[in-house]
Amino acid sequence: MTEAATEMAVDTAIKESAIKMRGTDVSVFYGEKQALFDVNLDVARNSVTALIGPSGCGKSTFLRCLNRMNDTIDICRVTGEITLEGENIYDPKIDVVELRARVGMVFQKPNPFPKSIYENVAYGPRIHGLTNSRAELDEIVESSLRKAAIWEEVKDRLHEPGTGLSGGQQQRLCIARAIAVSPEVILMDEPCSALDPIATAKVEELIDELRGNFTIVIVTHSMQQAARVSQRTAMFHLGKLVEEGVTDKMFTNPETKLTQDYITGRFG
């Protein structure tokens, strides 16, 4: 991994000043069923944090707590505290719209809106009123598409529907769409699971580049992916956080047997 990552995480713990988001005793209930048990996890600024674990382990649930996407599910209830820059995002006084503008999300399946490529990217800046003129908007769209490494592929057909792109292009479009709002944190829920290996490689490369400007939390099914893109990794199992720490260490010398078994493919 890059030097920046190793530099930032000399020790397994993150320096207090480098904490972007912090979850304290986070539990999630779906109706009567508890899906997440007292998770304590910090997310370091300008780094990639990977959440791994077998399916149904709660990693996606935790991710969706970070920008309160779980609010859209009626029966879902969250307890504990999650902070963004020290402010509890579950405080009733917090405006979830503002929160999501700062903590963006990219989903498992590419979900471009049935609009043109341009409109897809411009949607966020428009609703948040980030620009005053068409020229500024054009600029944001272009820079977002560039950052998402898809500009060259789509610059000649900005006004064609986004749904006409290939799967990998669609996903990078969705990343561009998230970037366009200039969030501080980008949450990615298995962003490559619906993509072929070549598209996956492109998106992974992109994630690594984005790390300079954004804090990224990524849920992934693939251990290799976690190892390739992340600086820190958290392992979930049955709704509990089993282990978390610097990625390199986790993959070479895990603390728990469970993690070791999972990483070596004994289960999962």
């Binding site: 920008n67 996407m69 859209t72 719209v97 503002e98 929160l99 999501r100 503008a101 700062r102 963006g104 999300m105 990219v106 989903f107 399946k109 979900n111 471009p112 809106f113 049935p114 609009k115 949607y123 966020g124 609703i127 948040h128 969705c174 769409r177 998230a178 709002v181 949450l187």
Partner: peptide
């Protein structure tokens, strides 16, 4: 699809913005 709604909410859109600008056009 619910994914459309999620995409819009994930960007910080309100419900009515999502309805007017994503769901209805779709």
């Amino acid at each position: 699809p619910q994914a459309m709604r999620d995409g819009s909410y994930g960007l910080g859109a309100t419900k009515s913005e999502t309805i007017k600008q994503v769901i209805l056009p779709a």
